[in-house]
Structures are given as C-alpha cells and as structure tokens.
Design a protein around this nucleic acid. Structure first.
Length: 412
DNA sequence: TCTGGGGTCCTAGGACCC
DNA sequence: TCTGGGGTCCTAGGACCC
C-alpha cells in the first residue's frame, strides 16, 4: 500500500489576522482579541473632510472575566496567549489594543479559505473555524508517479502545498501554515513547526530527528493532565514516550490510552480524513458578570435560563436538528462544575419543551453556593425531518390480538 | 489577576433485556 | 434456589480541542 499524503492547514493567528485586514493601521502593534462587547473601536468622522479616525481600547484598566481568544505575534512576544485571563494579559501588555470577538467576520473568512482549498483538493476534514485536514493522496498521485526519485516526489508535494497556500492568500489575504505527512497526527505536528506562513513536509526518515525531540504535549490528544502524569514517569519528549515500555504505559493509562500514546509517539496513526460528520449536541452557556445567588437573583437567573433555552432552540431550528437528551451545566463560584441531563421520549427543538426538561434537571442540583455559569445543552440529535420516523419506529404498535394471544387464550 | 464558549470522545456503573 | 453473560441505554464526570 502506498503511503498517504495528508496535509494539516492552520490559519495563522486567525481572528487577529482577520481584524488586521479591517484595521491595517494596527499592523505591527500587539493586538488581543477577546473580552466583551465593550471594546469596539470608537469611530469619529471629521465633519469637514469626512475622514474617519478610530480610537482603539487598550488592555490597560481592563476589568471583567474575559479570556484572550487570539493574540497577534507581537502580543505573544509579550507573553500573552490564548485562554489567558484578560486581567493577566493587561498586566503583561497594558498598551496592547483590545478588539471584541466578531465571529460572523471570522466565519465568512473561514468559508472563503475552505472553498479555495476545496477547489484544489476536495477531500477536506473540518476541524473548526481555522483549521482543516486535507487528503492529498489522490490529488498528487500523478505527479508522484511521474517523479523519478523520492526527492522529486517530495518537491511535487511541496509545490502542491504552495499552490494551496497561494489560493488561500488570494481568497482571503491571509497566511496559513501547512504540514504534510503520511498521517493526520504527524501533519498536525508538522504544521506547527514553522509558523507563521510555514510549509513543512515530514517524511519517513524525519521521525527521530524532527518529532522525537518535541515535548509529548505536542501530540494532539495529550493535554495538561496526561503530560503531567508522563512527567511523573520522567517522560517529557515524544522520543522518551516512544522508548517507554508499552506495558508500563498500559498499566498507568489503561489499555486504550496507553497503546494509543505509544503508537502516536512512533508516528503511527491510521485515522481517515473524514469529509462529513453530523453534530452530536448543540449548547449555549454564559458566564455571569458577577456570581449570582439562586435565591436573591432568582428573577435574573430565570430570565437568563429562558434565554439559553430559546437560544438552543433557535440554533436547532436554524441547523435543522432535534434532540432527546436535554441537559444543564452549572458552575459554582469555586469553579466546581456539575451537569444533569434527562432523556425525553421524542426528539424536540421546541423552546418550551427544552425549558421544561432543563428545569427538571436544575431541580436535581444543589443551589446553595453562588453560581458563576449556567448552560443548556441538547444532545442525541437527529435531523429534524426524521423526527416523524423516529416517533413511528419507537412508539409501540397498537396491541392487536396475535396468534400467540389466541393460543394463550385456549388455556395451553 | 482567578480561569470564555462551543464542541467531541471516553469511562464507568446501574438498569434492563434476552 | 448463590448470583452466567452479553448488549444497549442512560447518566455524570472528565480530558481534550479550537
């Protein structure tokens, strides 16, 4: 079997880069995207000339519970990174410009770049708003077949990747980084090796030299908890993980995770590029500006709760799904998070039905502590147009006398 | 200066059924 | 009445990702 050619494409500092397209005067400055709606630039029009000047908010004096969603490379150089609290970011980079998140604009750019890639290579797996996997195996098969040497074959793949980068840039004005490898795991690691505007091809011989020195955390699926447990075993790099005893890993992490980790460290990954998938759940949640008390802030909580249920219902209708498993999520002021869910008889997208089921879930949660976050979720989704079938297939048929009943009725 | 919002997948125990 | 065994669904929590 010939090896696959898998690419991972990651847009560079995506949200921040989209904002820079709109506000080119910010180029070169540290910019942070995140926080609340309060940080829109203020526009002033000169009545004489009609010229627009924008005043941008800076991080200095930021108060609130927002986190950094994305930061430009200039802001990252100051120690700011994604998921950091805005208050902490303000301490590190008080003069950085703050912009609110504008998902509609990012989604628009996301559609543009994906369409540009799809025109060249149709086998695309969506991994969120700013990244995709691409199966290039078929697309570059002719060039690879025509190549005389492995070096020429690699160059053909590299040229194809460059043409994808060019297409993304002309469609959006934005740069991206591409990693190419025989599988998704290595392609993902590779795309991060030369950011921004990178193009990295990882071949069979590159595992030990280029992958093994990297921290184990760089493997997609090894997060902070697993990395900490590995560190306790004196395993820090991917190479050390590869050389660890498989049975020891299985004993420590369980069969599935232990074996997966060991395979990953050896660069083994057979997962296909999945071009279509259905959503499993749809949810809305919100963190309050201040922690709320179930008794004293009852009315506010009730309004917010109804709003979340309405929002989920809207999302379900807009996307064409209905679900049977309704759940709530609640985070206390001490950050402890609890969930409750309940499966109802038939899938729904109705706000009142969701609210009723979610309300019954809430009744099973202790509400003595102050509450920081409230969320509503609908899972067990099926396409809305299949709900009628669902009901007829799962509702018991009317009981009619059967042969068995007749036989039973004759005292056998 | 405490930590967003939207997701996926896995685990594990109990219920329930055959 | 000493308790097999497999399959599926439901629920809660947790790790992880973008």
């Amino acid at each position: 079997m010939t090896p696959r050619v898998i690419a991972h494409l990651d847009m560079d500092a995506f949200y921040a880069s989209v904002e820079l397209l709109r506000h080119p005067e910010l180029a070169g400055r540290p910019v942070v995207i995140g926080g609340g709606r309060a940080h829109r630039p203020v526009e002033r029009v000169d009545p004489a000339t009609g010229a627009i000047t924008r005043t941008f908010a800076t991080l200095k004096g930021y108060t609130g519970r927002g986190v950094v969603t994305t930061a430009t490379y200039e802001a990252r150089a100051l120690g700011v990174h994604s998921a950091m609290g805005m208050m902490k970011a303000a301490a590190l980079a008080p003069d950085a410009v703050v912009l609110p998140v504008d998902f509609d604009a990012y989604r628009h750019c996301s559609r543009l770049f994906k369409a540009a890639v799809r025109a060249i290579a149709p086998q695309i797996e969506d991994r969120g708003i700013d990244e995709i996997y691409i199966d290039l195996t078929d697309v570059c098969a002719p060039q690879r077949a025509a190549a005389g040497t492995t070096g020429e074959a690699t160059e053909a793949v590299r040229a194809l990747a460059q043409s994808i980068k060019d297409a993304v840039r002309s469609a959006t004005g934005l740069s991206c980084s591409i990693g190419i490898a025989p599988n998704k795991l290595l392609a993902k690691i590779a795309s991060d090796l030369d950011k921004p505007d990178g193009l990295t091809v990882i071949g069979d011989g590159d595992l030990e030299r280029r992958i093994w020195p990297l921290p184990a955390r760089r493997i997609n699926g090894i997060g902070p908890k697993s990395a900490a447990r590995l560190a306790e075993m004196q395993i820090h790099s991917i190479g050390e993980l590869a050389h660890a005893d498989r049975d020891v890993l299985v004993a420590r992490f369980g069969r599935a995770q232990g074996e997966w980790m060991h395979d990953a460290a050896h660069g083994r990954d057979a997962r296909a590029v999945v071009t279509h998938s259905e959503p499993r759940s749809i949810s809305r949640e919100t963190t309050f500006e201040r922690d709320l008390s179930a008794t004293r802030d009852r009315d506010a909580l009730s309004r917010i709760f109804t709003g979340l249920c309405d929002g989920v219902s809207d999302d379900l209708r807009r996307k064409g799904y209905a679900g049977r498993t309704i759940g709530v999520k609640l985070r206390y002021d001490n950050f402890v998070t609890v969930t409750r869910d309940r499966t109802i008889a038939a899938p729904t997208q109705d706000a009142a039905t969701i609210r009723r089921a979610a309300g019954s879930c809430l009744k099973r949660i202790a509400l003595e502590r102050r509450i920081r976050l409230l969320g509503v979720r609908v899972g067990g989704l099926i396409p809305a147009d299949a709900v009628a079938n669902f009901v007829s297939e799962t509702t018991p048929m009317p009981v009619t006398p059967s042969l068995f009943d007749t036989v039973a009725g004759t005292n056998l």
